[in-house]
Write a protein that binds this DNA or RNA. Structure first.
Lengths: 229, 229
DNA sequence: ATATAGTGTGTATTTTTTACACTAAGTAAT
DNA sequence: ATTACTTAGTGTAAAAAATACACACTATAT
């Protein structure tokens, strides 16, 4: 950390807080750095914005390179630019978040060349993070807490077909509090973005719950409108 | 516009959407550019971030240089970085907004060296703006519309002492719709951030309204909590 | 058949939101 | 001093939304 490092010209990067849900816990994707500075530390995946990329494009590319995923709802939420946040020079980083369903059908291939490894770690037990990444993560969590109350983004964390209990679980994890089952169902159904399927959950050793799908058409109409949790 | 301009290295700037309220209209501060590109166009006031400035510091400095104001609530709300948004090179700009009371006690001195002049123009009748500034402004307006519903920021647009009617007027302008007087008063008072003064409005040719002040201590307690309009 | 574990449902109460109209107070003009 | 004018300031009833709360059902495993 204290060794002499080359100076960089002013550059901008994008760091992603990828929230993932595996059915049980909320996790974020972290990489273990293989290079100075902060060698061997855990850090948010991120990269430099290319000279001819738009910011959103760049974020999508970075997400793709790190996870193999495409078509994920991502949103820029803040710029971090403390002059000393990066020891090698002035690097302003734009923070994006994404919500991702883990496990199940598609496997992720979080391969990044500049990292020793990548891993989904539960947010309940995060290691110390490189740079100001703790701050970036904190603000990201705060953002989705706020946003999940007003916009239907929770579905992004779930597989295509899900049960209402799973959906409630997501809300409870993100908001950090228990919700009443009956009231939750009443409300979420009243938004009208869920489609009840003729299908039941499988592989459980108890009464199987009805599966729901997220209705994109109705979602499109609702988007922009205020909903409230 | 089509002449050859020097190429800039990657840089970041800050552009401010300064919303001002003069008692009647919502306005924003614009400057008329005196240099290429977009010479003679109206543009949002903005500037390059200095090498040793934090972003918020930089935003405060820029606001100060452009208006002479200090201690104004400002917030970064988005980064705009289309690769071709600036004809001279890749310039990512961080958008900040501020809410400002116009007229009254302190006069603004919106002096900027690189501009022919600066002017507060009503948002109901804006000229064509340079660069992607229309987009930046649009998103800023959208942001404060959303924020004014959930956080007590409307006061920033009013003088220290104000009437409830004035406050309602601000809400109506920002939200773009009429509100019911009685319901508005009930609600705004119930938030508990207003202090009723023993003082009346002066200089009006009708019954003078009671003045209110914004109670900063209660505000501090409320801040972070959700309120809802 | 029985134990187990999660599913799925309704109602009464409280709180919040909405809709709505007149009197009071001060100023200006005559 | 009367009158006209303009905005301030107030309450209630109805509707809608949020909350609190408990038990029977169903599928599986043993």
């Amino acid at each position: 950390m204290e060794q002499i490092l080359p100076h960089l010209d002013s550059v901008f990067s994008i760091d992603c807080v990828l929230f993932g849900f595996d059915g049980k816990e909320l996790k974020i994707l972290l990489i273990e750095r293989n290079e100075e500075p902060f060698k061997d530390w855990w850090a948010l995946p991120g990269n430099i914005v290319g000279p001819d990329e738009s910011l959103d494009q760049s974020a999508s590319r970075i997400l793709y390179e790190l996870t193999g995923l495409r078509g994920i709802y991502m949103e820029q939420y803040y710029a971090f630019g403390d002059p000393h946040r990066h020891p090698q020079g002035r690097v302003i980083t734009l923070a994006y978040y994404a919500l991702i369903r883990l496990g199940g059908d598609k496997e992720l291939r979080p391969i990044s060349t500049y990292a020793k490894r990548a891993n989904w770690l539960p947010i309940s037990d995060l290691p110390k993070l490189a740079f100001d990444h703790q701050k970036i993560y904190d603000k990201g969590l705060e953002k989705i807490k706020r946003r999940i109350k007003h916009q239907p983004i929770a579905f992004e964390l779930l597989p295509e077909k899900f049960t209402l209990t799973q959906l409630q679980h997501v809300y409870e994890l993100v908001l950090g509090k228990k919700l009443d089952k009956r009231n939750f169902r009443k409300k979420i159904v009243s938004f009208g973005v869920l489609k009840e399927l003729d299908e039941k959950q499988k592989g459980v050793s108890y009464r199987a719950a009805t599966l729901y799908r997220f209705d994109k058409r109705k979602y499109a109409k609702l988007f922009g409108k205020e909903i409230s949790f």
